[in-house]
Simulated scan of single mutants.
Amino acid sequence: MIGMFWIALVTSLTAWFCYMNTSEEIPRILAMAVGTLGVGCDLVIAPWPLQLGLVLLILYWTRHVSPPPTKAS
């Protein structure tokens, strides 16, 4: 299981590298899709301490995020 985690992580990082260094539209979209799928797989098959750490990191980063104010009509 941990081997699959590393394979998905390397694939995601490679896709991110391709996304950042490609100027054409279709390859960038495909690289973004592969990277997103890889990150999704990483989140599912990651060891539980890593999953817990990611959840805490996301909660810490988004604690000051609030929705935009609505316009009163």
Score class of each variant (00 low, 15 high):
Met1Ser: 08
Leu56Pro: 00
Phe5Asn: 02
Leu43Ala: 07
Ser66Pro: 00
Trp61Asp: 10
Leu56Tyr: 15
Leu52Ile: 11
Leu57Ser: 12
Asn21Trp: 15
Thr70Gly: 04
Thr70Ala: 10
Gly3Ile: 01
Pro49Ser: 09
Lys71Trp: 01
Gln51Ala: 11
Ile26Tyr: 11
Thr62Ser: 13
Leu9Asp: 04
Tyr19Trp: 10
Ala15Asn: 11
Thr36Asn: 02
Lys71Cys: 02
Leu13Val: 15
Ser66Tyr: 15
Pro47Asp: 05
Ile45Asn: 01
Pro27His: 12
Ile29Thr: 08
Ala46Glu: 04
Ser66Trp: 11
Met32Ala: 15
Leu37Gln: 06
Thr70Cys: 03
Asn21Ile: 11
Ala15His: 03
Tyr19His: 08
Arg63Glu: 00
Gly38Thr: 11
Ile7Pro: 01
Ser12Asp: 05
Ala15Tyr: 10
Gly35Ile: 06
Leu52Cys: 03
Leu37Ile: 14
Ala46Gln: 09
Leu30Gln: 13
Glu24Arg: 15
Pro68Lys: 12
Trp61Phe: 12
Ile26Phe: 07
Thr36Arg: 12
Val44Phe: 14
Ile58Asn: 10
Leu50Arg: 03
Met1Cys: 04
Thr22Gln: 13
Gly38Glu: 06
Ile58Leu: 09
Val34His: 07
Pro69Tyr: 08
Leu52Trp: 10
Ala31His: 14
Val34Ala: 13
Leu50Val: 09
Pro49Asn: 13
Met1His: 10
His64Pro: 02
Ile2Arg: 08
Met20Pro: 01
Pro27Arg: 13
Glu25Gln: 09
Gln51His: 07
Gly35Leu: 00
Leu9Lys: 05
Tyr60Pro: 01
Ala31Ile: 00
Cys18Ala: 10
Pro68Ile: 04
Met4Val: 01
Ile26Ala: 03
Leu57Arg: 14
Val10Arg: 03
Ala31Arg: 04
Gln51Met: 13
Ala46Trp: 02
Ile7Leu: 09
Ala8Leu: 06
Trp48Thr: 14
Thr14Val: 15
Ala33Glu: 03
Val55Gly: 12
Ser12Trp: 06
Gly53Asn: 11
Leu37Ala: 08
Leu52Asp: 09
Met20Ala: 13
Leu59Tyr: 12
Val10Tyr: 03
Trp6Thr: 05
Tyr60His: 07
Ser23Met: 07
Met32Gln: 03
Pro69Leu: 05
Ile29Pro: 00
Ala15Met: 02
Trp6Met: 12
Ala46His: 12
Gly38Ala: 06
Gln51Tyr: 04
Leu50Glu: 05
Trp48Phe: 12
Leu30Arg: 14
His64Cys: 08
Ile29Gly: 00
Pro27Asn: 07
Leu30Ala: 04
Ala8His: 09
Val55Tyr: 15
Leu50Asp: 03
Ile29Ser: 02
Tyr19Glu: 11
Trp61Cys: 06
Val39Glu: 00
Gly38Trp: 01
Pro67Gly: 14
Val10Trp: 00
Leu56Ala: 09
Ala72Ser: 05
Leu50Gly: 08
Ser73Asp: 03
Val34Gly: 04
Ala8Glu: 13
Ala31Gln: 11
Glu25Thr: 09
Leu37Cys: 07
Glu25Gly: 00
Glu25Leu: 15
Leu30Glu: 06
Phe5Ser: 07
Arg63His: 09
Val65Met: 09
Leu52His: 13
Thr11Asp: 02
Pro49Ile: 01
His64Asp: 14
Ala8Gly: 01
Ser12Pro: 05
Ser66Asp: 06
Val44Trp: 12
Leu9Gly: 01
Ser73Cys: 03
Leu56Gln: 11
Ile58Trp: 07
Thr22Gly: 00
Lys71Tyr: 00
Leu43Lys: 08
Gly35His: 08
